[in-house]
Each structure stands twice: as C-alpha cells, then as structure tokens.
C-alpha cells in the first residue's frame, strides 16, 4: 500500500523531470562503463601474468659463426648453471621455420629474409623466472653468445600499455562519476522542490522521515541501476564487436577477456552505482528537506 504510493511517486518524479533523468542515466552509464573497463583491464593484467608465468622463456641467441663445439659447451654451462629447468636448442633452420610461421601473413618479409640470417638459439625454461637477470648477466658477455633476451621484458611493455589504458579509464570514470553525482544532487533538488507541497503536508501529519525521503532516494537508485545496466550492455557489446570482432587480431596477442568476468561486473557495477546514488541523494535531502 505505502510501497505502491512510493513507487508511483518515484516514476512520476522521474517522468516529470525526464531530460534530467536521461542526462543522469547517460553520465552514469559512461562513468560505469569506464569503471568496468578499468576493472577488466586490471583483471586482464593478472590473467596475462599468470598465463605467461609458466611459459616465459629466456632466449640465448648465438653468434652466426659459432662452432658446434662452442655450442655444446654453452649448452652444458647453461644446464649446469642451476637456473634452467630445460634447455632447448633451436637451429638456424628451425628459427627460420618459426619466423615463417610468425610472419605467415607478410610474404614479402619472409622472402626478403634468408634462412642464414637468423641466429641459432637456446630457448630456456627457467626454474624461477626472477633469476633471469642473473642468467643474462652471466651469459650475455660470453664468447659465442650474440644476445640474451628475457621474454618478460617484452611482456613488460604490454603491461605498461595495459596499465596506462587502465589509468585512463579510471580517470574518465572518476570525472564522469563526479558529473553523474552532481546531476543526481541536482535532480533530487528539483524533485524536492516540485514536491514541496506534498513533503510539507507529509511532515505536518507526522510521516516518518524515511517515508518522506524514500521516493527521492529510490529515484536516484533507479537511475543508478539503469545506468549500470546500460554500462553492462556497452561492455558486452564491446566484447563482441570490438575485441572479438573488428580488432580481434590486435587482441589475439593476449588471452581473451572471459565472458565470465564481464558477467561478474553486472552485480558489481549495479551495487556500486545504487549505493553511491542513494548516499548522494540522502545527503542532498538532508540539506533540502529539514524536519
């Protein structure tokens, strides 16, 4: 009975002030989309780290004119060093095969490179990838070794990019979030003003405070929830259209963003949005409706 009254007031209030309601929902949706994207990237960094932790290799490239004896000697030293779990030799021919596989698409590049050019290498699975720097220090100056690279250093760049993107999304989320909350405060003020007559009478006859405030708070919560649902839909659409669609090649470098982690965002975004909207509305009311 009272709930019905409150609900009808909520929708009446939102409808009476429809342009503000729409603005509120849009800014909230943008803010929450950015927040969601930021959270996904944060999660993605973890996933990539875990994914590569076991697969990371240190590659020791050998000089082109290295003798087979020297090669065997280096191999023995690598195995004895105690850092390597597994040392695998990759000959010039194998290196070229791998190169051809990697650049399958760019035929010109493959044609331009001769098999001779690519160095033979040892691909080393480390016992502990954190010892990579020690191994690099020990072997990079050794005779017959051309260069030692740690795949993690390359990966670090990917992390840096992801980290940058994440910071950017969070900053946009924050700025949009502030704008959204100001719109909430403004909407509540307008709603409180347009309903001042009802509010005055309610207070006069002794309606409890929660009952006077409920329609306003629920208005903000409703807008927050709708905004969160829009944000969620945007993220889903982004997964299908951008990550799996248009830019699938670009994103194939990293493990795919799981549908599951996007689904998890729905309750998170809705919860955050509803709670913050409600608090904002409630604080606004404390300044606008005196008991």
């Amino acid at each position: 009975m009272r709930a019905k009254y409150v609900m009808s007031e909520v929708f009446l209030g939102l409808w009476r002030n429809i342009s503000m309601t729409v603005a509120m929902i849009i800014t909230m949706a943008v803010s929450l989309t950015m927040l969601g994207a930021g959270l996904l990237l944060y999660n993605q960094v973890d996933v990539i780290e875990e994914y590569y932790q076991t697969n990371l290799e240190v590659v020791v490239y050998l000089d082109r004119d290295i003798t087979p004896e020297m090669t065997d000697q280096i191999k023995a030293e690598l195995e004895d060093s105690g850092y390597a779990a597994q040392v695998q030799y990759e000959s010039k021919e194998e290196a070229f095969e791998r190169f051809k596989d990697t650049f399958e698409e760019s035929e010109d590049l493959v044609n331009a490179v001769e098999a001779e050019v690519l160095p033979a290498a040892f691909r080393i699975k480390m016992n502990d990838i954190n010892d990579a720097d020690k191994l690099i220090a020990d072997f990079s100056e050794r005779e017959g070794v051309y260069q030692v690279t740690n795949q993690r250093d390359i990966l670090q760049q990917v992390f840096d990019i992801l980290g940058g993107a994440q910071r950017l999304t969070l900053i946009v989320a924050l700025v949009q979030g502030i704008a959204a909350l100001m719109l909430v405060a403004n909407t509540i003020q307008v709603a409180a003003y347009s309903r001042r007559r009802e509010v005055a009478i309610m207070k006069l006859v002794g309606a409890p405070n929660w009952f006077v405030q409920a329609p306003f708070v629920l208005e903000a919560v409703f807008a927050g929830v709708i905004g969160a649902i829009f944000a969620f839909a945007t993220l889903i659409a982004a997964k299908f259209l951008v990550i799996d669609g248009e830019f699938a090649d670009l994103f194939s470098l990293m493990p795919p963003i799981q549908m599951q982690s996007i689904l998890l965002l729905l309750p998170i975004l809705t919860g955050i949005s509803a709670v913050i909207s409600a608090i904002t509305a409630w604080i606004t009311l404390r300044f606008n409706i005196k008991v």
Partner: peptide
C-alpha cells in the same frame, strides 16, 4: 529528538 518528531506530530492536528 529529531527522529521522534514525526511520531510527536501525529498527536497534533493542524
């Protein structure tokens, strides 16, 4: 107390 005001007002007509 402020929060008791509504209950108090119910005992008054205006």
């Amino acid at each position: 107390r402020r929060w008791k005001t509504p209950a108090y007002r119910r005992s008054i007509g205006c």
